[in-house]
Write a protein that binds this DNA or RNA. Structure first.
Length: 736
DNA sequence: TTCGGAACCT
DNA sequence: AGGTTCCGAA
């Protein structure tokens, strides 16, 4: 309810916001990069180019200088900056576009998932193919969500032009805060910010908004958003164009919009004002995100998972939340991981016709291939530069109102920022138990690798392989790759309460429910054969069919399933798994399931970090400790799908790697993941990373718009709410 | 140019 | 955790 106005949502503004990186103290490099990318002013030094998420540092020294200024590290140079960038390889946040100088590519999916699993991208945006919106890492403590804002409505126009515009104001603000000046007053700080707009602007805006904004958090949010969202969205997600443009690649869609100069992403999610219909575009996976209304749910204050520690929420909220998520995921093709957190919840789902999916897949596959080929070729694509103003993309718009009007801080109670800890969760019918965080990351390396470098990869992993992946089914917990990076922290936090970055969700165990699984394994299998894309895969997973079965089956089956699945899939599960695992653990998205299942719940998912475990009615089995048992015990889960996915993913990755080059794994912390995998075993979510990591390139997700429509609305609402809630939580930052 | 280890810093 | 700094290797 609440804010009808918000129908919109803002997109991931946060992505850009520096401040947002909660976990980290200061702005993170990737954030910073994103920030620069979004600003036209810096297009001479760094700009989106090539595939989705791909950008080129045109002036390394300048970028380094800016970064140094931001971090108050005058000695910064490209060599150092690039080192930092290289660290992202392992995290999979970024990877190098080989063959192109100073060219890197973001794996947004990962970013998102990892950092903000709960986020529903859906609300805001759209589709993001591979690249999802970046998120601030850590979701910690202060997290700010992108509020839903009314801004969405905005016209597309604005965005382009003003890079600085709204976003900037916000950003700046934040930035400023964070950056401030370095040691002495030099104004190192924000060059970026400054550059953008001038100072005046920023402040002015801020002030204005500020005025309006009433209370702390809430006000803040509102302030920010007024326009941002839209812009951001577009930029990020690119609304319309595929940046890469590659029109070629995208044949499916019909529309290729123009690529936005800024954003690399193809597709615009937004439903246009005109119609939601826009979305539909095949290509875009995005789905539509029309803003319609969201679910009426009210977020409980603590809903956000982020808080980790506290988890208070009521089941209803959870459901909604999940739902929203699901949709998002679905829409965006994100990994289901997000859902994992709340396994039991059932969500009504939109269903999408299998057929569609199939078709989509097929298309996509083709498309993808094409793309890949292109990419692989190394040649980049010619159109690199697409920097043109984006046009209006579709834009969505809604009449939304002035959100200003309803600044009321939402009805939800949320506002309070977080209290950490204290709240008792529960209340919900479900029982949630907090579990200790399992994993750690680090596992793999040990094997002998003389040198970790690139070579290893799959083979290596395979070998290492975890024990069998078989485990899949069992556990629920998953971790994401990235997560490892940020996630781990989270987890811990959650458990302890420390606030931590919190993003971590608390681990929860749910009792009621059950499981999942699906009979559909078979189907899945089919799919697996080919899979062109990661994303697709993901979607598939999501697809109702797979899971839906589950409803009840859950029970013991899992085991069975697992085995089965494994068998079916591949002879070498281990490899797959392992790898996948490393790369990305993919969990079966329980959340997803919900879609399918609509009525019931099913799965349980766990996230790696936060792991949740749902316990089946019979505690005995599943309860087992998350860690090891998971695999074994783990019952539920929809392993099958997972495996399939894994495989697929795996295959894909390999392909990609082959073609492009591996970029991904390399070393990556296989170990860690592996561990996770073991424990959880079953589920891991690979999807995400696969997607992302795999390359980022992957094709855009499909859109399932039609089916979703209804749900979307609701889901949106939910999202919005969530956002708000989270937003409130957010807080602040610091300076140098 | 790019990569990544290692030590170190915050 | 997320760099920063240095540096040797490819």
């Amino acid at each position: 309810m609440k804010t009808p106005g918000d129908s919109g949502f803002a997109f991931p503004e946060w992505a850009y916001k520096p401040e947002s990186s909660p976990g980290s103290r200061q702005i993170q490099l990737w954030h910073f990069i994103l920030e620069l990318l979004r600003k036209e002013e810096y297009h001479d030094v760094i700009a989106w180019q090539g595939d989705y998420g791909e950008f080129v540092i045109k002036d390394p020294d300048e970028v380094a200088r800016l970064w140094g200024a931001r971090k108050c590290k005058p000695q910064m140079n490209y060599d150092k900056l690039s080192r930092a960038l290289r660290y992202y390889y392992n995290k999979r946040i970024l990877h190098k576009t080989k063959g192109k100088r100073f060219t890197y590519k973001f794996n947004f999916n990962k970013l998102v998932l990892v950092n903000y699993p709960f986020i529903d991208m859906g609300s805001t945006g759209g589709s993001v193919p591979q690249s999802a919106p970046p998120v601030p890492t850590g979701a910690g403590t202060h997290f700010r969500f992108p509020p839903s804002t009314p801004s969405e409505v905005l016209s597309p126009n604005e965005d382009l032009r003003s890079p600085g515009g709204m976003f900037s104001s916000v950003a700046r603000r934040m930035a400023r805060g964070s950056v401030s000046d370095c040691s002495d007053g030099t104004s190192v700080n924000s060059e970026i910010e400054e550059g953008n707009t001038g100072a005046g602007e920023e402040r002015g805006e801020r002030a204005v908004s500020g005025g309006g904004g009433a209370g702390g958090g809430a006000g803040y949010r509102s302030i920010i958003h007024p326009r941002l969202s839209h812009e951001t969205l577009f930029r990020m997600y690119g609304g319309p164009g595929n940046p890469a443009g590659h029109p070629g690649s995208r044949g499916h869609t019909g529309h290729r919009i123009h690529p936005e100069p800024l954003s690399p992403f193809p597709v615009s999610p937004l439903p246009g004002p005109g119609g939601a219909s826009l979305l539909a575009p095949p290509l875009s996976p995005a789905l539509s995100m029309t803003p319609t209304s969201h679910l009426p749910y009210t977020p409980s204050p603590t809903l956000s998972p982020m808080l980790g520690s506290h988890f208070s929420f009521n089941p209803e909220d959870m459901k909604r939340y999940l739902q929203a998520h699901t949709q998002s995921v679905y829409n965006y093709g994100l990994s289901p991981r997000a859902f994992l957190q709340y396994p039991n919840i059932v969500i009504p789902q939109p269903h999408r016709p299998a057929a569609d999916k199939a078709s989509l897949t097929a298309e996509r596959g083709a498309t993808e291939r094409a793309e890949r080929a292109t990419t692989a070729g190394g040649g980049e694509r010619g159109g690199d530069r697409h920097h043109h103003p984006p046009l209006a993309h579709s834009t969505h718009h809604h009449p939304h109102l002035p959100h200003s009007a309803h600044p009321h801080s939402h009805s939800h109670p949320i506002h309070h920022p977080l209290h950490l800890g204290e709240e008792p969760p529960h209340m919900s019918p479900f029982k949630f138990k907090l579990q200790p965080p399992p994993l750690g990351r680090k596992q793999r390396e040990g094997q002998s690798q003389s040198k970790p470098r690139q070579s290893s990869l799959s083979s290596g992993s395979g070998s290492g392989s975890m024990s069998s992946t078989s485990g899949l089914g069992s556990s629920l917990s998953f971790g994401s790759d990235l997560s490892s990076a940020s996630g781990s922290g989270l987890i811990s936090a959650s458990s302890s309460t420390q606030s931590l970055n919190s993003a971590g969700l608390p681990k929860i165990k749910v009792e009621p429910i059950s499981d999942i699984e699906s009979e559909e394994e078979v189907e899945v299998t089919d799919i697996s054969d080919e899979d062109p894309d990661e994303r697709d895969e993901e979607f598939e997973l999501f697809s109702p069919r797979h899971f839906r079965a589950s409803n009840h089956h859950h029970h013991h089956h899992h085991h069975h399933v697992n085995g089965t699945a494994t068998t079916q899939h591949q002879p070498h599960p281990d490899e797959d798994l392992d790898e996948d695992v490393f790369k990305a653990p993919a969990p079966p998205p329980p959340g997803l399931m919900p879609f399918f299942t609509s009525q019931h719940t099913q799965s349980n998912a766990h996230r790696g970090l936060p792991i949740l475990k749902s316990e089946p009615p019979e505690p005995v089995e599943s309860n087992t400790p998350p860690s090891q048992t998971a695999s074994a015990g783990a019952p539920q889960t929809k392993c099958i799908p997972l495996k399939l996915r894994f495989k697929r993913r795996w295959s894909e990755d390999q392909r990609m790697e082959a073609s492009q080059e591996e970029s991904d794994d390399k070393k990556v912390r296989p170990e860690e993941e592996r561990e996770r995998a073991r424990q959880s075993n079953g589920q891991m979510e690979m999807e995400e990373d696969g997607t992302g990591s795999g390359e980022g390139e992957s094709p855009p997700p499909l859109a399932y718009e039609g089916s979703l429509a209804t749900p979307l609305a609701s889901h949106r609402m939910a999202s919005a709410e969530l956002h708000r809630a989270t937003a409130q939580l957010s807080l602040e930052n610091k300076d140098c």
